[in-house]
Every structure is written in C-alpha cells, then in structure tokens.
Design a protein around this nucleic acid. Structure first.
Lengths: 151, 151
DNA sequence: GGTGAAATCGGTGAGCT
DNA sequence: AGCTCACCGATTTCACC
C-alpha cells in the first residue's frame, strides 16, 4: 500500500489529472500497461476518488469565499445539518469539527449580498447559529497532498 | 464570458476531469472540434486552472485534517507568512481572512503527533500564534462550483 | 462551427521473468 | 504476480471548408 511507484503515479496525477499513460509511464519508468493496471487498482480501491478540473473562482463568477462556523441552537435534538445543507450548492465543503462550533463550512458566492442570503438560508434550514469569516485573499489552495519523490 | 455552452463544459469537467472531447461534445451538442477550441480557450484564459486527481486522504496516509488560524505575534512588522509557510507541504490551503486571526490554513497530517510538530514549525517559521481546530469528520469537500444546467 | 485524415492514446490479450 | 510487447478501436490534433 506504500509502493513508491504507486506513490509517484498518485503524485503525478494530483498535479496533472489529465496526464496520459505514456507520460506517467515515463515518469515512473514502467510500461504503459503496467501503469494502467496500477491505475485501475488505485481507482477501484478508491485511493483515487475521481478527477476534477480546477476552475478559477473569479472567472466563473464566485469571487467571494468564506468560512462559516455552525452551532446548533438547540443542543439537545438530533442534528443532521450536513444533510439538510447539502442542497445549497454554494457550500463547497462541510466538516464537523472539535471546538466551539459543530461544523465548519467553506462557501463560494457571487458577492456580499449572496453571502447574506446564504447565511440566512443556512440558519433557517438547519436551525443553527452561524459565524462567517470572509476570505480576503487566497494564497494557495488544493495543493497536492503528496510530495513528488526525488529519484 | 457567460456562455451557456462554456458553462456546461466547465460543469462537466469539474465533475469528471478526464471526460473526453467526445463525451463533452455529446453533453453540449457540438462537434468535438468545437468543444476542443472552446476548451483550449478556457485553459489559456485561466478559467480552467488545471486538472487534479482527487485522492482519498485516508488511503494516502493523511487521515487527520485541521484548520489552523494564524495571528502575528508582533503586529508591527512586515508579514509574509504565506510565503514563509509555503514549503510546509502539509498545508493544503492558505487564505488571509477578515476577523480575529490573519490567516486560515487547512492542513492534512498523518496524526496528532504530526499536527503538533506542524503547529510548532508554523510558530517557529512565521513567528505567529496559532489556533488549531481539528476536523472530526468530512461530510463533503471539493464539491463542484458550477451546477449542471438542465436542458 | 463542422469535416476529415494523421498522430497519439487507451484497452486487451499473449508471452516472458 | 507483475511486467513487456504487439495490436486495434477510440481519441486528440490540425489542416481546411
């Protein structure tokens, strides 16, 4: 499970998700079909969960992002905020966290007005308190998890 | 810039980053070469910033993730924490934020011990105070920014 | 934006180590 | 088992209409 070749394949694909078998086989030093069988194994085992194009948020019209912490108003009742909030497509990520709040969301919206509406929707839908922290600038995000190993 | 066809291409690629021109041309109802020229335009304009394989964090050995808020100890001096911290590969994202703290990091590590070491490294490197919030469970993340438009 | 031809790529099976 | 090699359908790429 900690095979260095698999590791190299994963590192390469997390940097260029459209890398071809030929490119991968060159970087790892195996034939394309050897790479292919490893790839299929990694995909079927779920190590590779999928492939995504990374879009520029500003270019696609959602230049404003924010973190929203969520706290249940009534701590006694069953809490299924993640499912309730799932239809809100502005929410990019939802984690439960240890700390004052129960959940941490990361959201992207068109602007301040849309953020206000989103926060109100969240409060109404999940019966929660919210604390939004606006992102002023994103220096980097979605950096690859794996480091590229030197030869 | 708000072309519905481009929008559909982007939506499809953010769900399946390895979609072929043939698949894309079917979903948008154009020929493959028309899709291709649009794709190249979207890539060269930076609307598509790149492609990534999405890896299962647990399967690649970083099951623990956390948010780390960063506050400068000395508010008077020049602050280039994002550049200073960039070599720390455990940091997946770095945003500057409005609020008590200056920056919000999202990090992935192998476990609590690695988190402790990372926090110490961050403090030492950037001369900052930190506040870490551990992620207990991730319900979803990296959800596509664009909704798939109905016909 | 569409068409068509050449280069390249992905997928499968036979044979080797 | 895992890898290499050879083959063929699919895909990408690039001219041109």
């Amino acid at each position: 499970m900690d095979d260095p070749v698999d590791h190299a394949i994963l590192a390469a694909l997390s940097r260029d998700g459209r890398a071809t078998l030929a490119q991968l086989s060159e970087t790892v030093g195996l034939s394309t079909s050897a790479v292919q069988s490893r790839l299929k194994r990694l995909e079927s085992r779920g190590v590779i969960a999928g492939y995504q194009a990374v879009l520029d948020p500003e270019a696609v019209g959602v230049p404003l992002s924010a973190f929203i912490e969520i706290t249940p108003i009534d701590p006694g009742q069953p809490d299924n905020a993640p499912e309730l909030l799932e239809p809100l497509t502005e929410i990019e990520a939802c984690h439960s966290i240890a700390g004052d709040a129960s959940y941490m969301l990361f959201v992207r919206v068109t602007g301040p007005r849309a953020l206000e509406k989103l926060v109100n929707d969240i409060r109404a839908i999940a019966n929660v308190r919210t604390r939004a922290t606006i992102v002023l600038q994103t220096y980097y995000e979605r950096r690859p998890v794996l480091a590229a190993a030197a030869d």
